[in-house]
Design a protein around this nucleic acid. Structure first.
Ligand SMILES: [Mn+2]
Ligand SMILES: [Mn+2]
Ligand SMILES: [Zn+2]
Ligand SMILES: [Zn+2]
Lengths: 142, 142
DNA sequence: TATCAAGAGATAATAATTATCTATTTTCTA
DNA sequence: TAGAAAATAGATAATTATTATCTCTTGATA
């Protein structure tokens, strides 16, 4: 709710730009890229620069406030949910969805499961599924 | 063994460059980047260009002969094993290992498990773990 | 062996991301 | 609450992984 408080709790300084960027990201389920956020913010924040969005999201990610996604596209996407969770990527239209949370819970222990089987000291993981989203699946079955 | 045969079976034309690139990739467990392959190949193949490696690996990946990895670094890596399998990425030194195959087998059914819980039509997946590799773990514990 | 599409290499172009620099804004404290 | 110190915003330029173009050469096929 209180964006300023959230930022401060993560050791981040509060500026109007940061508030706007965080709220735009937190307000969508689309896992937007920097450009996508820029286009969304520009109408209400004409002065905001692309560079600021890059730097801000980088700061947010370092602080553990957001997560950066690598989906095999030519740019990165961002997610207001920093917890490891599973993403579905449509290889036709590029859409990115969270896996249904019920289903994702079943994968929650995945890190602990693997921890015992590797010499690595694990701190994070990322799981991506690739395929056709419902609407692209429809189109293909014709 | 017979690289030319492998290439042809994947519908790829055979050239000395392609053979060299494929064998260099198949001969390492390091999941090299394009640059890394270039440096490795240059001594024996002075004429080979970076561009050719890019185009060749792209062709290999499209043909399903190799896999392109997105590890959150500023470049991509390639893997001579095109099957979905799990990777461990060291966030200190950048090393990338396969998860022990015994452990990975336990995750083999992960796609089928999720298939029932999503509207997506799944064709692939990628699982990355991030942490400290054995040697970096050592150094940290001092 | 001739044909012809595809590949190789040189070169230039793209485009996402980062660096630099200065004015402005936060934060902190006296 | 004013002022100092440090961090941020935005303008701009630079970087760099990757791709596009173009011409010459080569591999596949009959
Ligand atoms: Mn998400
Ligand atoms: Mn691998
Ligand atoms: Zn789609
Ligand atoms: Zn390491």
């Amino acid at each position: 709710m209180d964006t300023a408080k959230i930022l401060r709790e993560h050791g981040l300084r509060v500026t109007p730009q940061r508030i706007a960027i965080y709220e735009a990201l937190a307000g969508t389920k689309e896992h937007p890229s920097v450009e996508a956020l820029y286009d969304r913010l520009r109408p209400r924040h004409p002065g905001l620069s692309l560079n600021t969005i890059y730097k801000t999201l980088q700061a947010f990610a370092s602080a553990g406030l957001v997560r950066k996604l690598a989906t095999h596209e030519d740019m990165h996407r961002y997610d207001a949910n920093p917890e490891p969770h599973t993403h579905m990527v449509c290889i036709e239209c590029g859409r990115v969805d969270d896996l249904d949370s019920k289903a994702d819970e079943r994968l929650a222990g995945i890190k602990d499961l693997i921890s015992n089987d590797t010499d690595y000291d694990l701190v994070d993981h990322a799981l991506y599924f690739y395929g056709y989203c419902p609407s692209c699946r429809e189109k293909r079955n014709k």
